[in-house]
């Protein structure tokens, strides 16, 4: 791969990088390949941005955190100590999430202002209710303590497994479960209130109350949740390609 690289153009170089796995890119970066880390960033920055945005709940903080984290990753990626670590995506998420948590804790004394959602497409028709729901969800999420928010962002919002989230948050899996459980408990009144005015959003027994469940729906298995999370959301990251 490297023998004929001197004859290629920059665009061909990027294409070459795109063919390599994340681990190969980190190794190439450490070896001095100037295009490798850029490709790694291009590959992951959208997801890392999304996680940063929802974890901090603040666009500027998210941008600062993501920048700090990627600079840190750039430097750390040049270290031989990184090779052989967990999946590169997990490593990148860990750095970004930690940067977000640090920033969020520092500004904990200040109230969180729900984000203006520049990123939500302004569409008409049926999309309006979906957009409003997303705004409600994000505003609700921003009210949670940052540790609970980070766990829910990773597990529920972006579908990482509890084990993967534990690696990213540097805590035991049980702690992630507990944070998720407490976070969901805090969100319950908000979702309940959102549904209350709209009859028909839940199965009812005619009295306005839903019928009793056959059992408690478990949250630990995404595919089994009544919410119907797509099975493939359990592994949104992983090594690429």
């Amino acid at each position: 791969m490297e023998e004929d690289s001197a004859d290629r153009s920059d665009s061909a170089d990027r294409s070459d990088s795109a063919d390599r796995s994340d681990s190969e890119l980190v190794g190439a970066h450490a070896a001095g390949d100037p295009a490798a880390f850029g490709e790694l960033v291009r590959r992951h920055q959208d997801r890392l941005w999304a996680v940063a945005l929802r974890t901090t709940g603040n666009r500027d903080e998210a941008a600062d955190a993501l920048q700090d984290a990627l600079v840190k990753a750039f430097r750390a990626g040049a270290s031989s100590a990184f090779r052989g670590e967990a999946a590169v995506t997990t490593w990148l998420h860990r750095i970004v999430v930690n940067a977000c948590l640090d920033r969020a804790r520092r500004r904990a004394v200040r109230p969180t202002v729900p984000l203006p959602d520049h990123d939500l497409p302004a569409r008409s028709g049926d999309a309006i209710s979906a957009r409003e729901t997303a705004l409600d969800v994000r505003a609700a999420l921003a009210t949670l303590p940052v540790e609970q928010r980070a766990a829910l962002v990773l597990v529920d919002m972006y579908g990482w497994s509890v084990e993967e989230a534990a690696l990213m948050l540097e805590c035991p899996s049980g702690t992630v479960k507990s944070r998720c459980a407490r976070g969901r408990a805090r969100l319950l009144p908000l979702l309940r209130a959102e549904r209350r005015p709209e009859s028909g959003t839940e199965p009812t027994d005619g009295s306005g109350n839903p019928g009793p469940p056959t059992d408690v729906p478990p949250q630990t298995s995404p595919a089994a949740a009544p919410g119907g999370r797509a099975p493939d959301r359990a592994t949104p990251g992983g090594e690429q390609p």
């Binding site: 999304a50 929802r54 829910l152 919002m157 969901r184 408990a185």
Partner: peptide, 15 residues
Amino acid sequence: HTLADISQWLSSAAD
């Protein structure tokens, strides 16, 4: 039931 839907509620707002 509502609690069990929170995961889906959150994922629906994913960027």
